[in-house]
Design a protein around this nucleic acid. Structure first.
Length: 608
DNA sequence: TAGCTTTGTCATTTC
DNA sequence: CGGAAATGACAAAGC
């Protein structure tokens, strides 16, 4: 970057040119004309440098974490993708490892193996919460948590071991000796909200350096973002069977998304929303954000959610759309017929076969009522797909999706689990990759990267949301036939919903089949190539052998000819004269004796 | 911007 | 015979 001499008020033509160049560069980075101000721009340059440094550092750390994550995964031979290893520890640790999306898309949620040891995490805790005081109240739902102080939520996992019960947070001393099962210990640790926050802060620091630079305030951005990864940790580390514990996070965070969601929550959790609704809740839970969001938002990212009044309204939901696991677990909690092996199947379900749908107009073969039922959203999706890149595009996408999510309510009789399912489905990172990109601070570069990786937005999920399908797409696709039918029979779905669910299932199955088919085809090609190579090698060998045999045969013929002449030359008639080779020839009989046969006679005998 | 690759989808066939 | 899987073909999007 080029330094800009701020005190100089009068700018030469060269300066103006430099400014122009810089401005064009900034345009590529998504900057507007307003940043053309000198002080603004110098700050921008400094921030840019800092951002690059931080980004480099974070990439390094991210690579290490991904390495650690891959160590936790195993190769799915069917799909060729990495899936979490089947858990070998206690059953309560299992749900944490099952969601493939969480583990694949959010590598930092699974680095318990390598990236951070137990002691490091404890040290982290000690550093982050130096003056921890235990607030063990009996509040039934949740207690306000200040990001930098500590107070444990009253609701804890009932299965927590005594280590958790003894509230080790205030002392923050590492245990005398590491627990026998480190992974399980991590799962338990991660079920602690403070630790989750701590991890989130750390991960945010590593993964989102650009957030820091955008506002220049580390803590602000951390506090603005840390909560969005909480569901991941909840999903991964917490005991997902503890719905109350989940609620302690799910509800507040969901409330913080948007007023509409908040209203939606009030339908199911009226006591929470009445006591802690909207801004008051956010004041309580995100005090820093509440006071600073207004200042930071314009500088960081154009927020177009149309809900500027809400402290967190500007923060896209995409960060909340992370794990699919909760939806699965929640659904399967309410749907007890789902078997354990199905869960195993789910863990593979996302591996490389992301059950998304491409942005394609409604196919002619599709039932008409389905198309009609969500024609609007479909057209919106079309616009989203065809809209060229840029912040405007992202905003449009986000608006459209917000619109859909706002209208997305569940008429399900199994309200609680299915609501959870949708909450978690709404957090599915695959659902809205554009939203994800929208949240990140370097707007264009990261947007492009994210679009390139997760470009196929989950259209079926959006359709399902538009029709208020109370199932996760993964579930629809991966359930066995019997379970699927049972699940469908349990829900009162109208015709359009049934058709859509069947379409989703058919498309998902076919997607998997196409993947497998292509994989098989490639394997066939590879096998045929190998076979061709070996056959070529065999041909070369045989040709070489034939040449050698031929030359050997020629040599033997030569030797035989010379031997023949030698023997023939030794023969003499009664007058001591040699026989003429034209008149006589030697013949070797079967018993080894040699006869001299006149050629005429031979020919005569032959002719006879 | 053309060409190639990848991926999702549909229609059809095969199992 | 119905349903699932397999596969060819096409289109869209990314590179």
């Amino acid at each position: 970057m080029i330094e800009i001499d701020l005190p100089k008020i009068q700018h030469s033509q060269q300066d103006v040119d430099v400014i122009d160049i810089l401005w064009r560069q900034d345009i590529d980075l998504g900057a507007c004309r307003e940043v053309f101000d000198f002080s603004h721009r110098q700050k921008e340059h400094e921030l840019q440098q800092q951002r690059e440094l931080e980004e480099e550092r974070s990439r390094q750390q991210l690579r290490e974490q991904e390495k650690a994550l891959l160590a936790q995964l195993q190769l799915d031979e069917e799909t060729g993708e990495f899936v979490p290893r089947p858990p070998t520890s206690a059953p309560e640790a299992q749900p944490a490892a099952t969601p493939p999306t969480a583990t694949q898309n959010i590598p930092f949620t699974e680095e318990e193996g390598d990236a951070l040891s137990f002691d490091e995490c404890m040290q982290l805790l000690a550093e982050t919460f130096p003056l921890v005081e235990s607030v063990e109240t009996e509040t039934p739902l949740w207690t306000p948590i200040h990001p930098l102080t500590s107070s444990r939520p009253a609701v804890m996992d009932p299965h927590e071991p005594p280590l958790m019960e003894t509230d080790f947070m205030p002392t923050l001393e590492p245990p005398q000796k590491p627990p026998p099962d480190l992974e399980q210990a991590w799962m338990e640790l991660l079920s602690i909200p403070e630790l989750q926050k701590c991890m989130n802060l750390q991960m945010e620091d590593m993964l989102e350096p650009e957030n820091l630079t955008a506002t220049g305030s580390l803590t602000e951005e951390r506090e603005a973002n840390y909560s969005f990864y909480m569901p991941n940790h909840t999903d991964m580390g917490g005991d997902t069977t503890d719905t109350e514990y989940l609620n302690t996070f799910e509800r507040p965070i969901t409330n913080a998304q948007s007023p509409d969601d908040h209203v939606q929550r009030t339908l199911t959790v009226p006591d929470i929303s009445t006591a802690l609704s909207g801004d008051s809740f956010c004041d309580l839970f995100y005090p820093e954000i509440t006071t600073k969001q207004d200042n930071t938002a314009p500088a960081t990212q154009p927020i177009s959610s149309g809900d500027a009044g809400h402290p967190l309204a500007g923060l896209p939901k995409d960060t909340l759309l992370k794990p699919m696991g909760i939806s699965k677990f929640a659904l399967e909690e309410g749907f007890e017929s789902v078997k354990a092996e199905v869960m195993g199947e789910f863990s593979h379900s996302d591996s490389g076969l992301s059950l998304d749908s491409s942005s394609k107009p409604s196919s002619p073969g599709k039932p008409m009522h389905v198309d009609e039922s969500f024609g609007n959203s479909d057209s919106e999706m079309e616009e989203m797909g065809t809209n060229p890149g840029g912040a405007e595009s992202d905003c449009t996408e986000t608006r459209a999706l917000f619109h859909q999510e706002d209208n997305y309510q569940v008429p399900s009789p199994v309200s609680s689990p299915l609501t959870m399912s949708q909450d978690s489905k709404a957090r599915n990172p695959k659902t809205n990759p554009a939203e994800r990109g929208h949240h990140r601070k370097p707007p264009f570069t990261k947007d492009k990267a994210k679009r390139s990786t997760g470009s196929r937005s989950s259209r079926d999920e959006q359709r399902a949301r538009a029709l208020q399908i109370p199932f996760a797409v993964d579930t629809i696709v991966n359930l066995p036939v019997d379970d699927f039918n049972e699940m469908m029979s349990r829900q009162q779905l109208n015709e359009a919903q049934l058709a859509l669910v069947r379409d989703i299932r058919r498309r998902g199955k076919n997607k998997v089949a196409a993947h497998n088919c292509r994989k098989r085809k490639m394997e066939n090609i590879t096998g045929l190539e190998a076979e061709l190579a070996s056959l070529r090698e065999e041909r070369e060998r045989l040709q070489r052998e034939r040449r050698e045999t031929g030359s050997s045969l020629q040599e033997m013929k030569k030797q035989l000819s010379s031997l023949y002449l030698e023997v023939f030359g030794l023969l003499q008639n009664e007058q001591g004269q040699p026989y003429s080779p034209s008149e006589y020839s030697l013949h070797l009989s079967a018993d080894g004796s040699v006869f001299l046969i006149p050629r005429t006679k031979k020919t005569l005998s032959k002719s006879e």
